[in-house]
Amino acid sequence: MEQTAVEIKQGAQTREPMLRVHQLVKRFGGLTAVNKVDFEVYPGEVVGLVGDNAAGKSTLIKCISGVHQPDEGEIFFQGQRVRFSRPMEARDAHIETIYQDLALAGNLNVGANIFMGREPQKSYLGGLIKVLDEGFMLAESQKIMGRLGIHIPDFSQQIETLSGGQRQAVAIARAVYWKAQLMIMDEPTNNLGVVEQRQVLELVQELRQQNVPVILISHTLPDIFAVTDRIVVMHRGHKVTEKKTSETDSQEIVQYMVGALDDRRDSYL
C-alpha cells in the first residue's frame, strides 16, 4: 500500500515542480556569486544543497527567499513566475526560511512565537477593544506540536528556557502552521547536541510525510545523506552536479564540492 503511495508521489514529481529556478545569476560588484544556476524542487521532496564556503548556496537561497534580487534568470513557484522584492513577499507566497538564528523571540512562549505578527484577537464592545486570544494560541500550538511529534514540557514558559532543538522545532512548527509550501533550512543542526540533531532530522522527514518540500543546506554530509532525496552541489557559483541521494556517496559528493569533479567540464570534454 505504502509502496504505491510512494510510486504515485514519484510519478507526480515528473510532472510539475514546486519551485523552478532558471539560469539564475546574482552578482556583487565584480563577483558573480551565483552563475546561471538551474534547479528544481518537487512536492514532497527533500533537496540537499551543499558546497564549500563561498560556493554560492546561501546567495542562491536568499534569491529564492526574497532577501536578494537576482540580476538575471527567472524563478517559478507553483507554476507562476515570481519576483520577491522583500522577504515578506516570499513568506506571503508560503516560502518559509528557517534561519540559523531562528528568528524567534526568546522572551515569549511557544504560542506567542508561532503567532508572532499574526496574533488572533477577540473583539469586545463592537471591536472597540481587542484582546489577544491566548487560549486559541495555546490550543493551536499544542495541536501543531503534537502533529509534528514534538514534546514541549510547558507551553507557558518563555522559549529561551527550552533546548536548542526544541526552539528549532518551534521555528519549524511555525512555518508548517502557516502553510509553508516550501521550506528552506539553512544549517538547521548547527549548534545542537547529538540527540537534538536527530530530532531535527526526524522533523525534516516528517515534513516530507506532510508533502512539504524542503531545501536543506548543510555542511554535515551524514545529515544530508540521512534525509535528502536529491543532492545539488555548488562550487564557485556554479551548480556542478545534481545526484539522486541513493545513487551517490559522500566521497563522490566531496570531490564535487572541492572542484575535482564537475559535470559541466566533464561534458565539454
Partner: peptide
C-alpha cells in the same frame, strides 16, 4: 515584548 526580545524576529514576522 517581541521587539525587545528579538527585533530582527519581529521584523521578519511582519
Amino acid at each position: 515584548y517581541a521587539i525587545g526580545g528579538n527585533r530582527e524576529a519581529a521584523l521578519r514576522a511582519g
